[in-house]
Lab assay of single mutants.
Amino acid sequence: MTGIVKWFNADKGFGFITPDDGSKDVFVHFSAIQNDGYKSLDEGQKVSFTIESGAKGPAAGNVTSL
């Protein structure tokens, strides 16, 4: 699925993605970002991701920028 990064705190390594389908915002951890180098996201960035079952509920996985 796709969405827009609502916010991401690079110091803490997590944030939230707002899915394009209008569903509830999804937690994203830096370890789910699939790019080389520094793993961070920018507010407003368009991303593709999967929904994984995290310890505290749904979380984004396999996050790639579009």
Rank of each mutant, 00 (worst) to 15 (best):
Q34L: 14
S31T: 13
D21A: 06
A59C: 15
D25G: 04
V47G: 00
I51T: 06
G15V: 02
G3I: 01
G15D: 00
A55L: 13
I17S: 00
T18D: 03
D42Y: 15
G57R: 10
H29A: 04
G13D: 01
V63H: 01
V5N: 01
Q45R: 06
K46V: 10
S23V: 05
S53F: 15
G57K: 07
T64W: 08
A59W: 12
F27T: 02
I4K: 12
F30W: 15
P58M: 11
T50Y: 09
D11W: 14
E52H: 13
H29C: 05
V63E: 01
V5I: 08
I51E: 03
N9M: 06
F14R: 02
E52I: 14
L66H: 09
V63N: 01
A32S: 11
V47D: 00
T50V: 12
A60W: 02
D20P: 03
G3P: 01
V63G: 01
G15F: 02
M1Y: 12
F27A: 02
S40M: 12
F8Y: 11
G13Q: 04
G22N: 08
L66N: 09
A59H: 15
K46P: 09
Y38I: 12
L41P: 02
F16V: 06
W7Y: 08
E52A: 10
V63R: 01
S40H: 15
I4D: 03
T2K: 07
E52W: 09
N35G: 15
L41N: 01
K39R: 11
V26H: 02
M1F: 12
Q34I: 14
K56R: 13
F27Q: 02
P19G: 03
Y38D: 09
S40N: 09
N35F: 13
F49W: 02
Y38P: 12
V28W: 02
G3S: 00
M1N: 08
I4G: 03
G15Y: 02
F16L: 05
V26N: 01
V47C: 04
D36W: 09
Y38R: 12
T64Y: 10
D11H: 14
D21H: 07
K24Y: 09
K12Q: 09
S48M: 13
I17M: 02
N35R: 10
P58L: 12
F30H: 11
K56Y: 14
A10C: 14
V63I: 05
N9P: 02
E43L: 13
S23M: 07
V26A: 03
I17P: 00
K12D: 04
I4N: 06
N9I: 05
K12G: 05
A55Q: 13
T64C: 10
G37R: 09
P58V: 13
D21N: 11
G15C: 01
Q34K: 13
N35A: 14
L41I: 06
K6D: 03
G54Y: 11
P58H: 10
A60C: 04
G61F: 13
N35D: 14
D21T: 07
G61S: 14
L41K: 01
Q34M: 14
G37W: 07
L41T: 02
V63M: 02
D42G: 12
H29L: 04
V63K: 01
H29E: 04
V28D: 00
W7C: 07
K39M: 09
N9H: 09
K56H: 13
E43S: 15
S31A: 06
E43H: 14
S48D: 04
K46F: 09
G22D: 05
S31V: 05
F14Y: 14
N9K: 08
V5C: 05
K12H: 10
